[in-house]
Simulated assay, not measured.
Amino acid sequence: MPSTNYEEKPFLICKDHTVSGRFFELKKDEDLDLLVTHPRPEIEKLPEYYKSENYISHTDSKKTFFDKIYHLIRSYMLRKKLSWIKKAKKEKGNLLDIGAGTGDFLKEAKEQDWKISGVEPNTGAREIAYKKGVHLKADTSSFPSDHFDVITMWHVLEHVPDLDIQIAELDRLLKRDGLLVIAVPNYNSYDAILYKEFWAAYDVPRHLYHFSRHSIRKVFRKFSFKVCSEKGLPFDAFYVSLLSEKNRYGKSHPLKAFFNGLRSNLEARWTKEYSSIAYFIKKS
C-alpha cells in the first residue's frame, strides 16, 4: 500500500462527472510522488461507479460520432501496441491481458499468433468478449506461477484496490525474463496541468491512484522491477481533452480540445510528459 505521508492540503478536489456527482480529494503521497483518491469507496461498492453507458471500455458503444472515432483510433493502436511488444519481446508466447474490457486487444493478439489469456471483472464486458471468441476469467487466481511471457494492463493499474497486492500477483505470474506493459495517465502532462480538477483522466473514484513517471518507477522498484523504456500515447491527449472540456463547460468544444491535445503532445516531445504513457517493465 502507499505510505501515509500525505500532504495536509489536498492536491485537488475532483467531481465524479460520470455516475455519482460526488466530490473526492486527491491526496499526494510525498514518498512515492503518487496521488491517492479519498475517500475510497468500499470494494463491494466500486462496481456501482462503473454503471454508465458512457463507460465505453465496457460497452463497445458506437452511438455517437466520437464513439466511432474512438473505436477507429483504438483499432490502429491495438496493432501499434502489439508491434511495440514484438520489438521488446522477440518471440511470441503466453500473453495475459488484465482488465481486458471487451477483448479487442486479445482478439488482435490471437490473430497475430500469441497464446492469449485475459481477465475482466465486469460480467457484461466478458459476455461481449466471448462473442468475439475471447474467453476471459474474472480474476487471476487460477493461473499458474511463472507462466506468462508478457502481461499487459492498459489503463487498469489506476483502478486496482491495492497496488502492493496487484504488483505481487504480477510478480507471481510473470516468467523471470518476462515483460510487463503498464499504461496509465500521467498527472504531470500539459493537459492535466491545464484542466486541473476537470482533467478527465482523474476519473474519480474509478481511478484510485494517479501516477507520475517518478511514481511508477518507485512503486515497481519495491518489487525489484525496473522500467526499461516508455512509449507516449499521443491520441489520449486529444480524447482526454475532449472529455475535460465537457467536464469544465458542459460541452465538448472539439476544436479547442484538439488544439489543447496537440499542445500537450508538442510539449511532451521535449518533456516526455505525455498525457498517458506505456511503461515497459522487467524483473531486475
Rank of each mutant, 00 (worst) to 15 (best):
S3R: 08
Y6Q: 04
E7P: 08
K9T: 14
L12A: 11
T18K: 07
V19M: 06
V19C: 03
D33P: 01
E42Q: 12
Y50H: 04
K51L: 06
S57L: 14
S57F: 13
F65W: 11
F66C: 02
K68Q: 09
I73G: 11
S75Q: 14
L78H: 15
S83I: 08
E91L: 07
K92H: 09
I98F: 04
I98C: 02
A109T: 06
Q112Y: 04
E120F: 10
T123D: 15
G124S: 12
A125H: 04
V134I: 10
V134K: 07
V134Y: 04
L136A: 06
L136V: 04
L136C: 03
K137A: 12
K137P: 10
A138C: 13
D139M: 08
T140S: 15
S142E: 15
P144L: 05
P144E: 13
V150E: 05
P161N: 07
D162K: 09
I165V: 15
A168R: 14
A168K: 15
R172T: 01
L173V: 03
L173R: 00
L179C: 05
V184A: 05
S189E: 03
I193C: 12
Y195L: 02
K196H: 09
E197P: 07
W199N: 03
A200L: 07
A200C: 08
Y202P: 09
D203M: 11
H207T: 07
R213V: 11
R213E: 13
K218N: 14
K222L: 14
K226A: 14
V227E: 05
C228I: 14
G232Q: 03
L233C: 13
D236E: 12
F238I: 00
Y239C: 00
S244K: 00
E245S: 02
E245Q: 10
R248M: 11
Y249F: 15
P254L: 06
L255Y: 11
S264W: 00
N265Q: 05
E267I: 14
E273I: 03
Y274N: 05
S275D: 11
A278Q: 04
Y279W: 07
I281T: 03
